[in-house]
Every structure is written in C-alpha cells, then in structure tokens.
C-alpha cells in the first residue's frame, strides 16, 4: 500500500472516529457533570444567593424609604395645621392691638374726653 493510500485511509479513519468519538465523550462528560453533586463551584448558585440577598436588601430599603415618606408627610400635615392656627391667632391679636390703640387715642383726645 502506497503512502498516499495510507494517508487517505488515515484521513478517513481519523475523520470518522473524531466525528463519533468527540460528541460522545463530550455528551458523557456533560451527563457526568450534571449528575455530580460535587460539581465545580456553581456560579449560578452563587449568583442566585447574591441576587436573593440583594432583593431582600432592596425590599428593606424600599420599606424604609416608604416609612420615611409617610413620616415626613405626617409631620408636614401636623406642623402645617399648627402654623395655620398660630397665624390665625396672630392676626386676631394684631386686630385687637389695633383696636386698643384706637381706644387709647380716643382717651387721649381732649375733644372727646376733656381733662
């Protein structure tokens, strides 16, 4: 058999064996990895744990932010009404002061109350 014939046979055999063997070995290896509990460190599981933790923290932060918003709204409402009441009272006092000043002016007027 000539070297060229041997080469041709070698090429054909290597191609056929590789085409069958490589997918078969890789399929078996994939199955073994999938079946093994002691698989290499699973990035998926680490990611899942981290994502769960992140979601938990995010929901806690959201809850705290909502509570703060409610508290600020309550304080706004409370102080707002107190401020309004104080303003009303101040207006009433100013009116009273103006009235008393007028009265005082009348008392000091010699035309109205001669000495």
């Amino acid at each position: 058999m000539s070297p060229v014939e041997l080469t041709t046979i070698g090429l054909a055999v290597a191609t056929v064996i590789s085409s069958i063997l490589v997918p078969w070995v890789l399929r078996r290896r994939a199955a073994r990895l999938a079946a093994s509990d002691t698989n290499v460190v699973s990035w998926q599981s680490i990611t899942a744990v981290l994502q769960e933790e992140r979601d938990k923290l995010r929901s806690q932060l959201d809850a705290a932010a909502e509570q703060n918003r409610r508290k600020i709204a309550e304080l706004d409402a409370d102080y707002g009404s107190q401020l309004q009441a104080a303003r009303t009272r101040l207006t009433a006092l100013e009116t009273e002061v103006a009235r008393l000043r007028d009265r005082l002016r009348e008392y000091n007027d010699p035309h109205i109350y001669p000495a």
């Binding site: 041997l6 070698g10 090429l11 191609t15 064996i17 590789s18």
Partner: peptide
C-alpha cells in the same frame, strides 16, 4: 461549540495521522 470542536479535532487529527504516516 461541540460541532466546531469536533470539526477541528477531525481536521487536525486527520492531518496528524497523515504526518504520522509520512
């Protein structure tokens, strides 16, 4: 990915056989 590796191994493997025969 498996197809690409299989094709590569088939080609390189067959050339290796050819060089071995040579």
């Amino acid at each position: 990915v498996v197809t690409a590796h299989t094709a590569g191994i088939a080609l390189v493997g067959s050339w290796l056989i050819a060089f071995f025969v040579r």
